[in-house]
Amino acid sequence: MKPSAFAYHAPHSLEAALDTLAELGEDGKVLAGGQSLVPLLNMRLAAPAALVDLARIDGLDAIEVTDRDVRVDARVTHERLRTHAAATEAIPLLRQALDWVAHPVIRNRGTALGSIAHADPAGELPAVLALLGGHVELASAQERRTATADDYLVGPLESDTRPGELATAVVFPRPAPNTGSAFDELARRHGDYALAGVGVTVTLDDDRKVRRADAAFIGVGATPIQVPLTDALAGQPGDALAPDDAIDLARSTIDPEDDIHATARYRRHLAGVLLGRALQTAAARAVAGGTA
């Protein structure tokens, strides 16, 4: 189908974009890469009166890597972030997760921050944001604010971007030293939405035993489901991790639903299998010389 008619604004600067969004209020919707929004428009699941296109903004397209974090502006595509050497070296989980994001052709247009703002329950980057304890930077004509994953990811396809606001950047903190990470998921076809998936981080102490472990699941709840695993894994050797307790804990924590693609029972089973694999991979990476 075709999208319904909308007025179009392509501002040249962030300030102009915020002024336009303030004027439009509830009527305005931000267009970045369009890989999630345009399907919704084409299927008429969304019909905003006006689009504010970020395509002609001068700036808003930087990737900044510091000692503390990686900051990704609103116009940065999945593919640019995925192939950014400094960013993915600082936080290998970005590359590990982005390898699973959609198909290459979609990654060329879709933006990293856009997929977080879109808040699909099967989206990989919302889980990375939650797992790393990152935040989103938002701006309006009146104020600037930041929001953590818990505050920002409200529900399925619902993020806390208020009328007149623009999500300008996402900040991913670098993991602690001696941390390994991994992302694993299963889809019927690589690049499609995952039936279930999980990102994990495992931090080892100086004796190469687990000091901290965390997981964030996708596709098994309304938002990324975070499961702290430190209690289940603390003290285990990084090179011979036994994930059974962690798997049991995760399976009893998540509460997936049936849909046309898979039953809840299958999703719960799958989530545990993926978690076991991801934990062992992440622990091995930590042993081999995290922060990886």
């Binding site: 179009y8 392509a10 345009v38 296109d53 979609i106 247009r109």
Partner: peptide, 17 residues
């Protein structure tokens, strides 16, 4: 191909490019 990179033309608006 948009500037050499493959994209879905059904997910882009002409005015945008």
């Amino acid at each position: 191909l948009l500037d050499g990179a493959p994209i879905r033309s059904c997910l882009a608006f002409a005015i945008s490019v």
